[in-house]
């Protein structure tokens, strides 16, 4: 890591609402965050949490109410700095009268590339995202997944140092998601900084060096996926099969899935539980430690946020 690629300081975005636009609702509240150079950073949160707002602020599509941000040490208002950034919007929609090759060539023209270089890059990118056989078809005939791929191609076409992707897995089938994951990992291998937003937590756990969790416009935690959650054991899980009927008391606490049963017990009760199950004729298949996952951490935050919002609403009434 060589310092921060993206630095966000006290970034706040409020939207006016009401008949006279006198009331204000905060979509993002005092966001402070850094994305280190060369890392893959996942920005996770539920819908409406402020992920896209943050990314749009970084891309100067909307303007902050307060705060500032820098990318590669330069303020985001610096247009020339955008040569070093690749951006994939959420649910991208491009000029549907263009073919994929034409669209990529159009965007490449803003990067001061020669005609030969543009042609070469466009061909390579189309191949990379698996659209080399569909490059002569107008984008209006593309599926959502194909649009997502062409969007990814335009984001990395000019070999940017920082790539910001808003929900890059959205609309993709499992194969497409794997291809996008591979591209993100390839970008990381090439030393690029990647920041992507998602609400698919398995993608974040699989790809990210660090994740930031945002809920209700506020950042709730930043760190490696493993360090964010409570890594203390939350008990033990016993997986077993049962031959014949049994009336062992523990069985009432087990969950049946097909021919197997899962039993969740405290760590200190593990051996007693195993003996009791074996006595009842059970065949133990596995014993594993239960840890909190990123998903549980995330869901706990969302639920706490909802409970807090409901409490405020009740006290307001």
């Amino acid at each position: 890591m060589q310092g921060s690629a993206i630095e966000i300081e006290n970034l706040t975005k409020e939207y006016p609402f009401g008949f006279l636009h006198l009331k204000k609702k905060a979509s993002l509240e005092g966001l402070n965050m850094q994305v280190e150079t060369g890392e893959v950073f996942g920005f996770i949160g539920p819908n409406g949490a402020g992920k896209s707002t943050t990314i749009k602020l970084l891309m100067r599509l909307i303007f902050p109410t307060a705060g500032s941000a820098r990318i590669l040490g330069k303020p985001i208002s610096d247009v020339e700095m955008h040569r070093e950034i690749g951006y994939l919007p959420e649910q991208p929609y491009f000029y549907d009268y263009l073919t994929a090759a034409e669209m990529l060539d159009y965007f490449a023209r803003f990067q001061d590339l020669t005609a030969a270089d543009r042609k070469d890059r466009v061909q390579r990118m189309l191949k990379k995202v698996g659209l080399d056989t569909a490059h002569k078809i107008q984008l209006r005939k593309y599926s959502k997944g194909m649009l997502q791929r062409v969007g990814l191609a335009q984001a990395i076409l000019h070999d940017p140092k920082v790539v910001i992707l808003d929900e890059p897995m959205s609309g993709l089938d499992p194969l497409g998601r794997r291809e996008v994951r591979d591209i993100i990992l390839e970008l990381k291998r090439d030393g690029k900084t990647v920041m992507f937003s998602t609400h698919i937590l398995s993608d974040a756990e699989m790809l990210c060096d660090r994740v930031g969790v945002i809920v209700g416009g506020r950042l709730r935690g930043v760190g490696a996926p493993g360090t964010l959650v409570d890594i203390k054991s939350q008990g033990m899980e016993i997986l077993f099969e049962l031959r014949g009927a049994s009336n062992a008391p523990l069985l009432s606490k087990a969950t049946r899935t097909g021919a197997c049963y899962r039993l969740h017990v405290a760590e200190e009760e593990l051996y007693a539980a195993i003996e009791q199950l074996r006595g009842a004729g059970a065949r133990i298949l596995s014993v594993s430690q239960v840890k909190a996952t990123l998903e549980e951490f995330f869901l706990n935050l969302v639920e706490a946020d909802r409970a807090q919002a409901a409490a405020v609403e009740v006290s307001g009434k």
């Binding site: 891309m59 599509l61 955008h82 951006y87 929609y93 803003f110 990067q111 335009q154």
Partner: peptide, 12 residues
Amino acid sequence: KRTLYALLAKPV
């Protein structure tokens, strides 16, 4: 149609 998003992220 939000076609502007990708464009304004370029040096324009």
